[in-house]
Design a binder for these strands. Structure first.
Lengths: 114, 114
DNA sequence: ACAGCTACCTTGCGTCACAAGGTACCAACT
DNA sequence: AGTTGGTACCTTGTGACGCAAGGTAGCTGT
């Protein structure tokens, strides 16, 4: 039926997810499995592990997060992720960009340069 | 430098663009070239023709827009696009979805089933 | 005739969500 | 001891799509 709409939703997630993850990590450190359940419970998202684990790898490769292993008394060890300074910087840039996007028609000129 | 951020912006566009285009067409009919310049001038977007033409094709294939050729006295003929009823419906669904996404922590339960 | 604008469309590339599948560790029941 | 079920990690293959670059064609001015 609405192939188109469903596909659109997937595309929207691509942008939103990374932002949401960084946002979440800005609050406190978390491990991936925790994030999966958190996001899956959120309104429009509903991601699975296959989405998040590669995402976390990308974040780490790009230096936005750092990870730390912690053993658990009940279950496998957890890999906790924290934001690096670059991660915080990128998050701020994202926030700014999204702010611009949501402003309906007001482009807002940059510091009146030139 | 910020490969990651730039890439992210590209991903965000994927979701935003289709919504913006439908929004724009909901106002009045437009032709593709017009949309390109309109979007390119908007804050965070900056798309090119190579992005928009395939997008318009997809919209037409999915029955969200209809097109109509109109000759121009100055230049090539223009293909004007209008929203179909399905297009309007999809736009409404998108608006709803985005509304849900932006609600910070309020999932809004579905009819309290179960 | 030629440059430049409008206006349409296509090809090749790279990125990414997602489903599905895989490994391993631990607790509880049979 | 074996099986189930939960936690927690990660990989592979597929399909979708933005984008740069390139292509076609009509009109205008020099």
């Amino acid at each position: 039926m609405d192939d188109f709409f469903n596909n659109w939703v997937v595309q929207v997630r691509k942008g939103v997810l990374e932002h949401r993850v960084l946002r979440s990590l800005a609050e406190r450190e978390r491990y991936a499995y925790e994030l999966v359940r958190e996001m899956a419970a959120a309104p429009g998202l509903g991601l699975s592990e296959g989405t998040l684990y590669p995402l976390m790898s990308r974040l780490r490769l790009n230096g936005l997060v750092a990870s730390r292993l912690e053993e658990s008394t009940s279950g496998p060890a957890r890999k906790y992720y924290t934001l690096t300074p670059e991660g915080r910087q990128t998050l701020a840039a994202m926030d700014h960009f999204l702010g611009e996007l949501n402003r309906p028609e007001g482009p807002k000129r940059e510091g009146g340069s030139r």
